[in-house]
Each structure stands twice: as structure tokens, then as C-alpha cells.
């Protein structure tokens, strides 16, 4: 529920036309918050692991002798005060203080973005794999239960009407205008929301699969997975790109939560109950 709606209706405090619906099942709510914890730990420990070799390549192999696709490094390690340089394809950015060099140290990501804060690959890996196990089990519970109870089909699959270009366009316009749905429309996810949720589920699946592809043991057992991603270094690069996209999703997701009314939105993910303003003003 947005403040914009409140204002147009001139409501002050009391909500005469509010309706409460049961929006999130207990499985969705519990798995959501476990995801929040897991994704945070996975991201920060993942950035720690990245620091051990801050370059990304395409194909099977890649090391200092190959040309990286991405590098987050110092311009010259031997200099007394090296500069942080981030390269993505043909682009070069000076990123001293955040990427490449921070806290007077050559490290791809700054201390406040890695777990542990110190350079410690061994402990970073422990956190990453331990959390990954919880994350994967949590994800399987989510996928399985919501396939069986029809949540995906009922609530996340876009309807035929929603897929019409005109409808998608109108939804984009609504989003740009920060106009949030009221009444009946607020009871269902809009099409961009559905794309975002289905998209992030796909990203997470890709994340797990590319993570597994970096394992020499899994590569021996499931060689086709490696073919799918075009090699171990490609899998590592895709893993990093997906991580960035998931961070982007979370930023937009949290921004939308604030725009739509943080108490109602976060509250519904805790209690399951969501307050809907009946759309008299619209």
C-alpha cells in the first residue's frame, strides 16, 4: 500500500475501506527469510573467494597468462600506492577505495563487503559451502511445495491477458509513475512483478548450477553441465554475473517494498496478512 493512494483518498490514520487478505503461506514466509540470511552470507563469502583470483575468463581455462574478461585488481602491485583498476571487457574504471584497492590494501572487494573481513579464502569457502547447503535445501523445499500446492501456476505464471504487449506496456508506465495497484488488482502480482520473481528463481537455479560446475568432482560425475556453460571458467564468470543480477533484483525489490509501504509489505511476509485498500479513489 502506498502513501500516494492514502493521500488521494484523503484518509488520515483510519482506513475505512481496508480489506485484509491472506497473501503468503507459511512456507513462502519461512523460506523467504532463510533466503535473506543465506543470500547475504553467500554474497559476502563469495566476494571473499573472488578476492583470491580477481579475474574472470571465458572457456575452460584461465590464469594470469590469459586475457581476462573482467578484472578487479591493482594497476601495479609493486607501486607504493597502487591504484584500484576495474576492467570489464574493453572498459577501464579507476575504482581506488572500493574495488581493487581499499584500506591501503590490494583486494578486489573492500573489507566491509567480505566475510570474513580479512583476506581468508579458507574461512570464506567454509561459510560459502556451509550456507550453500542450507540455501539449496531451503530452495528445494520452496520449489517442491509451491509446485505441489499450485502457487506457481496460480500466482506466478503470467496470465494470457498479462502477456499482451499493451498490458505489459501499461504496467511499465505504472511502475515508472510509481503508481501501485489498489482493490482487486492489488490482490494479484502484476506482470513485471511476476517476471521479476520468476527471473530471480531462474537466476538462483543458474547460480547453483554454475557453482556446481566449478567443482572438479561434479564435473567428472555430470560432464554435460560443464558443456552447458562452456567450461569451468565460463561457469565462474556466469556465477559472478548472476550474483550481480541477484543483487540488482534485491535492490529493486527492497525499493519497491518501501514505495509500496514497508510496514504492510514486510508485515505480510511475517504474518502472511496483507492489507488492501479498496480502490474507491481510482
Amino acid at each position: 500500500m502506498s502513501d500516494a493512494v492514502l493521500r488521494t483518498n484523503g484518509a488520515t490514520g483510519s482506513q475505512p475501506h481496508a480489506e485484509v487478505i491472506y497473501r503468503h503461506t507459511v512456507v513462502v514466509r519461512v523460506t523467504h527469510w532463510i533466503n535473506v540470511v543465506c543470500l547475504t552470507l553467500l554474497l559476502l563469502s563469495g566476494l571473499q573467494i573472488f578476492c583470491a583470483h580477481p579475474m574472470l575468463y571465458w572457456g575452460q581455462k584461465g590464469d594470469e597468462y590469459d586475457r581476462p574478461f573482467v578484472s578487479i585488481d591493482a594497476d601495479d602491485w609493486r607501486k607504493e600506492h597502487p591504484e584500484g583498476v576495474t576492467r570489464i571487457g574493453p572498459l577501464t574504471f579507476r575504482t581506488t577505495g572500493v574495488l581493487g584497492v581499499s584500506d591501503g590494501e590490494v583486494r578486489a572487494y573492500p573489507r566491509w563487503l567480505t566475510l570474513p573481513a580479512n583476506r581468508d579464502l579458507a574461512t570464506g569457502r567454509r561459510w560459502h559451502f556451509f550456507t550453500a547447503w542450507i540455501f539449496v535445501i531451503n530452495g528445494l523445499v520452496y520449489l517442491l511445495s509451491n509446485t505441489l500446492n499450485g502457487h506457481f501456476k496460480r500466482d506466478l505464471a503470467p496470465t494470457r491477458k498479462q502477456l499482451q504487449p499493451r498490458h505489459i506496456w501499461m504496467d511499465i508506465v505504472d511502475h515508472v509513475k510509481l503508481k501501485h495497484p489498489v482493490g482487486e488488482a492489488a490482490k494479484h502480482y502484476n506482470v513485471l512483478q511476476k517476471f521479476a520473481y520468476l527471473g530471480v528463481i531462474l537466476l538462483i537455479v543458474l547460480m547453483v548450477l554454475t557453482g556446481l560446475t566449478m567443482s572438479p568432482g561434479v564435473d567428472a560425475a555430470v560432464p554435460w553441465l560443464l558443456n552447458l556453460f562452456g567450461g569451468r571458467q565460463s561457469a565462474r564468470t556466469v556465477h559472478w554475473i548472476c550474483a550481480n543480477l541477484i543483487v540488482l533484483f534485491v535492490l529493486v525489490h527492497v525499493a519497491e517494498v518501501f514505495l509500496a509501504g514497508v510496514v504492510n509489505e514486510v508485515g505480510s511476509m511475517i504474518t502472511g496478512r496483507y492489507r488492501i485498500k479498496t480502490g474507491d479513489g481510482h
Partner: peptide, 12 residues
């Protein structure tokens, strides 16, 4: 074979 270092790089 491919040699995968714990740091993240690979060589064949």
C-alpha cells in the same frame, strides 16, 4: 586434464 586451483584459476 584441467587443473583447478582453489583460488579460482584453471590451466590444462
Amino acid at each position: 586434464t584441467r587443473h583447478d586451483c582453489v583460488e579460482g584459476w584453471s590451466a590444462i
